[in-house]
């Protein structure tokens, strides 16, 4: 139960296509801050999809937070993701027709467990507090289309963090930021993960950030499907 991620003999392909993932073993301790490195096309996003339960492993066992995803129905996997995983995309993270506040609050509104973990605080208050922590407290009422890319990524981080999910998965969230902003963003993210006790899986093709993490995983090393 101490493993956040425990992958054994995972193989994945889209339909009848070639194997995209072939990972004999990949484990990650709870509470760790892992940097998952991989160049484009090395199956990073696919792996994250499998870990998040959006994609179903073709073969093998995938345990996330102790839960065997293959044993869950599609609906249960969706609920599991909503409950336990916060996800940050590379860009275009936000739903354009929702305000900043509504974007942040979305997972809590989507899932009762996430809501329950707000410790009695309201969804809006928690969202506002998180936004404050990430220095975007003054943007809550703004339409998301008026935000800069950096601001958008912070909103996305807040959304991933709300309701303190055990696992935060970030798919190249900083690739569109300049270096200084990347560091600031990461530091804020680390601080919040720590506060929530969340495990962080951070994916990037950019090794310059490697040093800030407690664990570095090179996807080409673990994924045998990549030639």
């Amino acid at each position: 139960m101490s493993l956040a991620i425990d992958v054994r003999g995972l193989r994945f392909r889209y339909g009848g296509g070639p194997w995209v993932l072939d990972i004999p073993e990949l484990t990650l301790e709870r509470g760790s801050r892992a940097f998952l490195f991989g160049p484009s096309g090395s199956g990073k996003t696919t792996l994250l999809g499998v870990l998040a339960g959006v994609l179903e492993a073709t073969e093998g066992e995938v345990r996330v937070l102790g839960e065997d995803l293959a044993a869950l129905s599609g609906a249960r996997r969706d609920a599991f993701r909503a409950e336990h995983i916060g996800y940050v995309f590379q860009m275009f993270n936000l739903i354009p027709y929702l305000s900043v506040l509504d974007n942040i609050a979305l997972p809590a509104r989507m899932n009762a467990e996430r809501r329950a973990r707000l410790d009695g605080a309201g969804v809006k208050e928690t969202a506002a507090l998180l936004a404050d922590h990430l220095h975007i407290g003054d943007l809550l009422k703004k339409p998301v289309t008026e935000l800069s890319v950096g601001q958008q990524q912070r909103v996305a981080a807040c959304r991933a963090l709300i309701g303190a999910p055990e696992l935060i998965v970030a798919d190249e969230p900083t690739s569109s930021l300049d270096f200084d902003r990347r560091e600031t963003f990461l530091e804020l993210l680390f601080k919040e993960c720590e506060r929530a006790g969340s495990t962080l899986v951070f994916v990037s093709h950019d090794r310059t950030l490697e040093g800030m993490f407690s664990r570095n995983i090179s996807l080409p090393d673990v994924n045998k499907a990549v030639l």
């Binding site: 969706d78 609920a79 993270n93 354009p96 997972p107 989507m110 996430r114 959304r159």
Partner: peptide, 16 residues
């Protein structure tokens, strides 16, 4: 499509 992916990511099932 982007919007759908985001909704999926925050826990919306296909039924939603």
């Amino acid at each position: 499509r982007r919007e759908m992916a985001i909704l999926r990511a925050v826990g919306a099932g296909p039924n939603r």
